[in-house]
């Protein structure tokens, strides 16, 4: 639509160009990559970026976090939070793995359910996630307890369930048809792991869902002003259940991918993933107070986390230092981004 049409008698100084908000965070990503590149030549004598293997590992490492972060972003846009993602990953990994064992395993969890089609393991993992998410959503919608508390409860209980499921034992010897989902494929000489493809697919689907569907519009509306959303006829409770269910489903998917890649299910899988996912969303410009956020930003935020981990390993920085610096960089990235956005707003 032409700007002047609507402008009426406004003193319009020509239509303004709006840069998408991701541009500044993309700048941060590029900046970090360049710093590693330079440091690489100085300290290691090697290029950080010109290495297909490394680039592929960077995204592989974060693709599980990325899948979760896509769900968490939607939850945060509604002004909520999901602390249970990491535990749901663990539980879903256990359940999926238990249905994907080979009969070669004499101590299979379900000796009668071995050598099955991987479909069942995958569906079970997704189902567990969906169920956990629906419980989260229903608790929040029906009892009106804060999302922080509801999902904190789920975080503790789901982890407990994951341990109880096999009384703490790992679930090993998984069928190859299942572990196939954690494998890499060579696409035009570039090793592309399946989890990465799944991550990008999930990101594209929910980018479209948030931007172009009624589901997306209502998600933003609820985060921006719940009272106005209600008066506009939005069923807030029902919608929140959907959003948390989707977040749970994606955590379940992340759990399935984790089990497939590790070729086992372990009750400790996914510990603290929720924090990385929240960090990825927030670095990507999603506002914890709700109403603001985009999947593209989250994807960039996720990659930033991956580049940091990979870059430190490349530079042979000790693990303790890595964590310390990573924490600082997360906060710094958000500060820089907010500062720029404010400047643009005031201009």
């Amino acid at each position: 639509m032409s700007t002047n049409e609507i402008a009426g008698s406004a003193n319009v100084i020509g239509s303004k160009k709006r840069l998408p908000p991701e541009v500044s965070i993309l700048g941060v990503l590029i900046g970090i990559a360049i710093v590693f590149e330079i440091l690489g030549w100085i300290f290691v004598g090697d290029s950080f970026l010109a290495n297909k293997q490394r680039l592929s590992i960077i995204i592989l490492q974060v693709s599980v976090i990325g899948i979760i972060a896509v769900g968490v972003t939607q939850v945060i846009i509604t002004a909520g939070v999901d602390l249970s993602s990491g535990s749901v990953v663990g539980l879903a990994a256990m359940v999926a793995a238990s249905l994907a064992q080979t009969s070669a395993n004499p101590r299979a969890v379900y000796p009668s359910l071995t050598d099955m089609s991987p479909i069942w393991a995958i569906l079970a993992g997704l189902g567990v996630g969906l169920l956990a998410g629906m419980v989260n959503g229903s608790l929040i919608a029906r009892t009106k307890i804060p999302p922080f508390i509801a999902t904190l409860g789920m975080m503790v209980s789901a982890r407990g369930l994951a341990k109880w499921y096999t009384l703490g034992q790992p679930v090993a010897l998984l069928d190859e048809s299942f572990t196939w989902f954690g494998k890499s494929f060579n696409i035009m000489g570039f090793p592309l792991p399946l989890p990465v493809i799944v991550f990008l697919l999930v990101a594209v689907i929910f980018h479209i869902a948030l931007g172009y569907t009624r589901y997306g519009k209502f998600t933003y509306a609820i985060g921006a002003n719940p009272q106005a959303a209600r008066v506009s006829g939005i069923n807030i409770g029902g919608h929140l259940i959907k959003v948390y269910a989707i977040a749970g489903l994606l955590s379940g998917l992340a759990g399935v991918m984790t089990a497939a890649r590790a070729a086992s299910g372990q009750p400790g899988m996914g510990v603290a993933y929720e924090l990385d996912a929240i960090a990825a969303a927030v670095i990507g410009g999603t506002s914890l107070s709700g109403g603001v956020g985009r999947i593209t930003g989250t994807v960039i935020g996720t990659i930033i986390l991956g580049v940091l981990t990979s870059g430190f390993t490349f530079l042979k920085v000790g693990a303790y230092y890595q964590e310390i610096i990573k924490g600082i960089i997360i906060v710094a990235a958000v500060i820089i981004d907010q500062h720029r956005q404010n400047k643009r707003k005031k201009a």
Partner: peptide, 25 residues
């Protein structure tokens, strides 16, 4: 301010929020 505007959203989104229940979808 309290029950009307979605202050974080743009004019287009604010205009269309209620009608999405019944049309244009």
């Amino acid at each position: 301010k309290e029950t009307g505007c979605f202050l974080l959203l743009d004019i287009q989104e604010n205009t269309q929020m209620a009608v999405l229940q019944s049309g244009y979808v």
